[in-house]
Amino acid sequence: MNKRASGMLRAGYLNSLIIVLGLGMLYPILWLIAASFKETNAIFGDPGLIPKAFTLKNYVKGWSGIGIVGFSAFFRNSFFICALCVVANAVFCSLTAYAFARLRFAGRNIWFAILLITMMLPGHVTLIPRYIIFRSFHWIDTFLPLIVPKLFAVDAFFIFLLVQFIRSLPKELDESALIDGCGKFGIYWRIIIPLTVPALITTVLFTFLWTWDDFFNQLLYLNSPQRYTVPMGLRLFLDSSGVSSWGPMFAMSVLSLVPSFILFFSLQKYFVQGISTTGIKG
């Protein structure tokens, strides 16, 4: 009895330690949320987490944006780009992964080694020529440079993730489908895809998050505010407004984090799986 009580006490200590540490880590984010509901003059240097006077003014002002472009346009653009990237990645990465995991062809090991190498390659070495290529297509200031590469399965991380997953599926299913007269595509579409759903969800999740947060490519390829995405909109806000607009800026920052937040909490277990199989970067 005594031993059990001391065990419970220890678990209690541990729990409170983890919670206190965790709250400390979350403090900046909690402060951001609180600040977005504060009056502008109360934001500066107020470390408190509960607004003294609760206001929604920041959200209204922020949503109307800067100049002619409202924040709704930035959100629409971001969602549009993300949706297309998600679909493209799910289709083309899984197609490629199926070939590597299941099909036999000459040179498979060499190609797979190349795939793994491209995973480690810093994007900088392809950056400028890609820009030149897209510029020669007159694609600058369109969404195309952000979306079209995904049609060619350029995100090797997801191919790797899906290959690992497909390899773990029992091969007997393919073989019996083959006997039933399924072709290669039939096996991919009817057998592999339905069974790969968990890994596909991981792919979709991370594609969405990375595209949503991707700042570098959007900075590179988008020039006019009508085509700006949420991160670019925030940056425009930051550059073009003075001290007076920290409130609206924070309000829009909070909104920009909401989609990632919802996805994370509704699909948590797929995150853990994705991170532990590929060591996906933070």
């Binding site: 983890i18 919670i19 965790g22 880590m25 979350l26 900046p28 984010i29 402060w31 951001l32 600040a35 934001i43 998050l209 949503w212 947060d213 700042f215 949420v230 991160p231 925030l234 940056r235 930051l238 920290w246 800026m249 924070f250 829009m252 920052s253 909070v254 920009s256 984090l257 990632s260 937040f261 994370f264 909490f265 948590q268 995150f271 853990v272 933070g282």
Partner: peptide
């Protein structure tokens, strides 16, 4: 544990965004 893991992952989930960088500038 799953709850704690989620809490500790939140900064990683959101930290790469422009929003958090803006916040950092203010903090």
């Amino acid at each position: 544990i799953p709850f704690y893991r989620a809490i500790y992952y939140i900064p990683t989930l959101l930290g790469g965004s422009v929003a958090i960088a803006v916040l950092w500038r203010r903090l």
